[in-house]
C-alpha cells in the first residue's frame, strides 16, 4: 500500500468536486486545478424502477 498515497502527497492537487458548489469555489480560491460536477438527485421513481429492474435482471 501507500505508494499511491505517497504519490498524492508529492503531487500537485487536481480535484473533481461532485455536489456542493461552495467546495469548488474554495478550491478555486486556493488556486487548485479543479472541475465541478453539478449533481441533481435522480427522480425518485427512476430509482424505484432501477431497484426493481436490478432485482429482475
Amino acid at each position: 500500500m501507500s505508494e499511491k498515497v505517497m504519490e498524492l502527497f508529492k503531487s500537485e492537487l487536481k480535484v473533481i468536486n461532485i455536489g456542493i458548489e461552495i467546495f469548488y469555489n474554495a478550491l478555486l480560491d486556493q488556486e487548485i486545478k479543479a472541475v465541478h460536477v453539478t449533481w441533481q438527485p435522480p427522480p425518485k421513481l427512476e430509482k424505484e424502477y432501477k431497484d426493481i429492474l436490478s432485482k429482475i435482471l
Binding site: 492537487l13 480535484v15 455536489g19 453539478t38
Partner: peptide, 23 residues
C-alpha cells in the same frame, strides 16, 4: 470555472485528477 453535468465529461476535462470531493 469548469462545470459539468456528468462525472464522465468532468473526467475527460481533468484526466489526471488525483482527488475527488464527493458531497
Amino acid at each position: 470555472g469548469q462545470y459539468f453535468y456528468s462525472l464522465e465529461t468532468a473526467l475527460e476535462a481533468l484526466p489526471d485528477a488525483n482527488l475527488a470531493i464527493v458531497s
